[in-house]
Design a protein around this nucleic acid. Structure first.
Length: 266
DNA sequence: GCGACAG
DNA sequence: ATCTTGTCGC
């Protein structure tokens, strides 16, 4: 039999074309907010802030744990937590993260919404970008549109788009000797504003990259990030990350115990 | 042609 | 995302 080296890339291409269409369609529902909100406006309406993240098994990379947490914005206490272990067959392809991660997270959100949970979040922080994305529609936008929640995207690494590079960001960080200035607007070569690089802890060399997802302004997004950053990563996302890892390892332990006790000693 | 490419 | 030990510091 002759090898067909293009078969895999062909499937991948077809998948991406399909996904491009979906992104395009969903993008039309994206709501961008330009207006500034006063301190009182956004603070009064914002009490519960959600955070979502996924962790993956080291043994089987297709096993993942998606976690949703909700924090009380006023004290950053976790008031809600839920996780779901799933098997993911969808690959990670840069620019299409949502197709891999969004389904689990949406499920967790809907479960909460269906029972009219009193802690259902007013805003959701997502690990992954919003409009800081090759087509302006990252995971945070995707989740926002499908859940109709305001979303803020948080990237721990820069997704190189429209001429944005780490070199430029570093340049900004170095040029601005003023350590009190820790928010830098990310403007692409085209002049479009994608979000902001934020030095979330004192003098940190590695910023986080904030971009709006759905139904929030960049200024509000930045305010929320600043008020939720105890450490480099905003607390809602950090808690979701920690707890999804814990959940995953506890379940793995449980499975191991069952396998061990279920198997006679020889 | 080569490198870059969120999680 | 995940693989990984000690180590420096408050």
């Amino acid at each position: 039999m002759e090898e067909n080296p293009s078969s895999e890339t062909c499937c991948s291409t077809q998948l991406q074309e399909k996904w491009l269409g979906i992104q395009d369609k969903l993008k039309k529902k994206l709501i961008m907010v330009e207006e500034e909100q006063t301190e009182d406006e956004w603070h009064e309406k914002l009490e519960f802030v959600g955070g979502v993240d996924l962790s993956f098994s080291k043994e089987d990379p297709s096993i993942a744990c998606g976690t949703l947490v909700v924090l009380d914005l006023h004290n950053l206490n976790v008031v809600y937590e839920d996780s779901s272990i799933v098997k993911l067959d969808v690959p990670y392809i840069p620019g299409f993260l949502a197709f891999r991660e969004a389904p689990v997270l949406l499920e967790l959100l809907e479960k909460m919404k269906k029972c009219s949970h009193p802690f259902y979040p007013h805003l959701l922080m997502v690990d992954g970008n919003g409009i800081l994305h090759p087509r302006g529609f990252g995971l945070a936008c995707h989740l926002g549109v499908l859940s109709d929640l305001p979303t803020v995207g948080i990237g721990k690494n820069l997704h190189h788009v429209d001429g944005l590079s780490l070199a430029k960001v570093r340049h900004l960080l170095e040029v601005e000797e003023n350590s009190s200035l820790d928010v830098f607007t990310l403007i692409g070569d085209s002049g479009y504003t994608y979000g902001a690089a934020i030095r979330s802890t004192q003098g940190s060399l590695k910023p986080i990259f904030v971009s709006v997802g759905h139904r929030v302004s960049l200024s509000t997004a930045i305010k929320v990030v600043k008020t939720t950053c105890r450490f480099r990563i905003p607390e809602p996302i950090r808690q979701a990350d920690i707890r999804s890892k814990q959940k995953l390892s506890s379940v793995c332990c449980k499975v191991r115990r069952l396998l061990n006790t279920g198997t006679p000693g020889f």
